[in-house]
Design a protein around this nucleic acid. Structure first.
Lengths: 141, 141
DNA sequence: TTAAATTGCTTGCAAATTGCAAGTGATAAA
DNA sequence: TTTATCACTTGCAATTTGCAAGCAATTTAA
């Protein structure tokens, strides 16, 4: 059996991860899919950071190809598609939470003190709850 | 007092974090500075992923400007500079560890099973130890 | 005491990626 | 039927990247 994976820059897991989401937009898309419960192209395009439509289209293809999201037609409106995170994406929640915490502490403590408080008192439960909510929204399990 | 900070894309802490290290190279540089104990330009340039010299120079300036690293002359060789992570960078270790774990689990389980075992049995200590080692290497206290 | 290396960059340029605006084709609503 | 909406695609200019060569300030070697 031959491998179907892309060639890697190196064997380092950080490098591997960055090949998938090491750019300005991929994690913004995953944030919206998982933490803001957006699941349609139009909703993702409305990210307040202002992603360009061709870039969004390319990132969604990439994420689907890498197995981080699935795409299916909306049964209620055949013009639309629904993008859902996979379990691989759910596995990114701990990293996203650490990124959020660093961002709050470094950038703007006032804006996220509730999150910070909860993180400091019950990190594991916060993450489990978030992951369950994501799975739930995505119809996983 | 007027603010000296760059304008942000949004108030989101993930977005803020990505403005600092949301690209293919910045976290590779921080990985080498913190987890591989490299501290000179030449050593960083030798990253196996093959960073271009102009890109490395720009990233180092950026990281210094953002307060994630400091730069000082090598007292033993005035041609060289020593780049050291700051406490702000040390604060990124938990996120980097989660990224490593995701990368190992997703990409190549065999290559990092020791790290994974230790992560699963004593995550907090693993992170504390790593952070202390980084502070030590950097002469922080 | 010079000449050759080494170090940490900068510069120039081609190639790739991004951002922006304007389509396009399929489906749905009026 | 016409018009609107949705999920893109396309074309193109602007920005960013990668690559190779250069350069000034040391340090090492002859």
């Amino acid at each position: 059996m031959t491998s179907t994976a892309e060639p890697r820059r190196s064997e380092c897991p950080i490098s591997f991860a960055l090949e998938i989401f090491g750019d300005r937009w991929t994690l913004i898309v995953l944030r919206d899919l998982m933490l803001k419960s957006r699941q349609r192209y139009r909703e993702l395009l409305d990210a307040e950071e202002g992603i360009a439509t061709n870039v969004l289209a390319e990132r969604l293809k990439r994420l689907e190809h890498r197995g981080l999201i699935t795409k299916k037609r909306d049964p209620a409106d055949a013009r639309q598609f629904i993008y859902l995170p996979s379990e691989l994406a759910v596995g990114l929640v701990p990293m996203l939470v650490e990124m959020i915490v660093w961002g709050i502490r470094t950038g703007d403590k006032d804006a996220g003190s509730d999150f910070l408080d909860r993180f400091e008192t019950e990190r594991d439960k916060l993450i489990r709850d978030l992951q369950q909510k994501v799975r739930n929204d995505a119809g996983l399990r």
